[in-house]
C-alpha cells in the first residue's frame, strides 16, 4: 500500500471531482470540422445537411412538389430526432412516393433516396469508416438474403428467416464479447473457485 494519491481529501473528506483530459478520440473518425467564414460546423452537421439536400433535390426531380413536401418533412424530423429514427420514418414516406416498384426507373430512384438516407444515418457521431463499411456490407447481405428467400418461399418466410439470422448473429457477437472479455466462467474457473 502506498500513499501516492494524486489528489488529497477535501476538508470534509468527501468526494473530489474527477479530473479528465478532454482529449476527443477521433483517430478513426472520417469527418472533422468545417469552417465557413467565422462559423465552424461539425462534420456530422455537414453530412446531415448534405443528406437532406440530396433528398430534397432528387425528390423534386423525381416527384415534383409532392416529393419536395415529403423530403422537407424528413428534413424537419432530422432536425428534431436522431438519425436512426429518421431513417425508419423516412421509409414510411418512401412508401407514399413509391407504393409499387414495378419498373427499373422506380428501383433506381429508391436506391438514390437510400443514398441520401445513408448520409443522414452516418451523421450520428462518432462516424467511423469501419462502421460505414460494415453497415453497407451487412445491409446488402441482409437485403440479398431477404429477396432471394422471398423469391422462393414468399415474403413471410423471408422475413422470419431474416429475423432469425439477425438475432442469431447478434447473439453470437454477444457471446464472443463475453468470452473475449473473460466474463464467462470456464469449468477450470469453477473448479478453482470451489477449491
Amino acid at each position: 500500500m502506498s500513499d501516492s494519491s494524486t489528489t488529497q481529501p477535501s476538508s470534509n473528506g468527501r468526494k473530489q471531482s474527477p479530473e479528465s483530459d478532454e482529449t476527443q478520440a477521433t483517430d478513426d473518425a472520417i469527418i472533422g470540422t468545417f469552417s465557413v467564414g467565422n462559423r465552424t460546423f461539425g462534420g456530422d452537421t455537414v453530412i446531415k445537411l448534405l443528406g437532406v439536400s440530396w433528398l430534397i433535390g432528387f425528390s423534386w426531380l423525381f416527384n415534383g412538389l409532392f416529393g419536395i413536401a415529403i423530403a422537407v418533412m424528413i428534413g424537419v424530423i432530422t432536425h428534431i430526432s436522431r438519425p436512426v429514427i429518421v431513417v425508419g420514418l423516412a421509409h414510411a414516406g418512401l412508401l407514399v412516393l413509391y407504393p409499387e416498384i414495378s419498373t427499373l426507373q422506380a428501383a433506381v430512384e429508391v436506391v438514390v433516396f437510400e443514398i441520401g438516407l445513408l448520409a443522414i444515418l452516418f451523421s450520428d457521431p462518432p462516424v467511423e469508416g469501419l462502421t460505414v463499411l460494415l453497415t453497407v456490407s451487412l445491409s446488402v447481405a441482409f437485403g440479398t438474403t431477404l429477396f432471394v428467400i422471398a423469391g422462393q418461399s414468399g415474403y413471410w418466410a423471408a422475413v422470419a428467416i431474416l429475423l432469425f439470422i439477425i438475432f442469431l448473429v447478434a447473439f453470437v457477437i454477444h457471446r464472443y464479447e463475453r468470452v473475449s472479455l473473460g466474463l464467462v466462467e470456464t469449468e477450470t474457473d469453477l473448479v478453482e473457485t470451489e477449491s
Binding site: V84, L121, S137, L138, S139, F142, G143, L162, A170
Partner: peptide, 8 residues
C-alpha cells in the same frame, strides 16, 4: 435491412 445492418 438498413437499420439491422447498422445495428449489427
Amino acid at each position: 435491412v438498413l437499420l439491422f445492418g447498422w445495428l449489427i
